[in-house]
């Protein structure tokens, strides 16, 4: 044990780990899910070798994993300053753009990445979503006032905290209650449904039909087909069977009202 310590001390003095070794070690830590340890190591290595593309790329990836979007963007931009078409950095920035609703920018970044590296399944999968969202935005109809669909005939359940019905292009048909952010929320729901559909289809399951999203304060039940989306939010104390029964009934009413 003592010899091992002495050897370690001597070895430590003689052989300082190279930045390449540190990046490799950081990659191993990342693969174990030890994100913060990996990030600390990458930062130390980049202080030694600030122009290392792999290091900045790893830093960007780790910041994304740690939900530090601003720092991730800076790291990916540093990579592109060193290598203007680095596909992983372009993918990283495209993911940030998609998160922030900048679908046109996302699409351009992914197209650039695929031009350099066509065999890139992650980029191709995200590009399908970005293209779909861009088409939605260009073909979106004007939101209709709630009166266009007779909400009293939908008989929304009394225990429902929030209800929204929208077309698949994110045109809001009705929201109850309706507020200044209702359209943005509808766009967010459609985007979520698109990503979920893409994931289910990649898993070989086909498009989204139902979803249950547990939040901290309430549970949102979703019903969807290729043309429309309904969301009903309930308190946690409402039983799932009750909520699903309400969802199916309101869904049927919405479909017949807009038919």
């Amino acid at each position: 044990m003592i010899f091992a310590r002495i050897w370690h001390l001597l070895g430590g003095k003689r052989r300082r780990p190279t930045s390449t070794h540190m990046f490799r070690q950081a990659q191993r830590l990342r693969d174990e899910g030890r994100l913060q340890d990996a990030n600390d190591l990458v930062e130390a290595a980049l202080r030694r070798e600030p122009g290392n593309v792999v290091g900045h790329l790893l830093a960007g990836s780790l910041h994304m994993a740690l939900r530090e979007t601003g720092q991730a963007r800076t790291s990916f931009e540093r990579v592109l300053a060193l290598d203007a078409t680095q596909p992983r950095a372009l993918l990283g920035l495209a993911r940030i753009a998609l998160e922030e609703g900048e679908t046109a920018a996302c699409r351009d970044l992914l197209t650039k990445a695929l031009t350099r590296y066509p065999d890139f399944p992650e980029a191709r999968a995200l590009l399908e979503i970005a293209r779909g969202l861009t088409v939605d935005a260009s073909s979106k109809r004007a939101a209709t006032p709630n009166g266009a669909l007779r909400t009293e005939r939908l008989r929304l359940p009394a225990e429902c905290r929030e209800a929204m019905f929208m077309q698949s292009d994110a045109s809001l048909v009705f929201a109850e209650p309706r507020g200044p952010r209702s359209e943005a929320v509808a766009a967010g729901a459609v985007k979520l449904a698109r990503v979920a559909t893409a994931m289910l289809e990649r898993a070989g399951f086909g498009p989204l039909r139902h979803a249950v999203i547990e939040g901290a304060a309430e549970t949102t039940y979703v019903r969807a087909d290729d043309t429309a989306l309904l969301t009903l939010a309930f308190d946690h104390d409402v039983k799932a069977e009750t909520a699903v029964a309400h969802l199916e009934r309101v869904w049927g009413s919405c479909r017949s009202e807009i038919a």
Binding site: M199, A203, G204, F205, R209, A211, V212
Partner: peptide
């Protein structure tokens, strides 16, 4: 969250 289609769920 749970997302379902006709032939499976995630």
């Amino acid at each position: 969250a749970q997302f379902s289609s006709v032939s499976g769920a995630a």
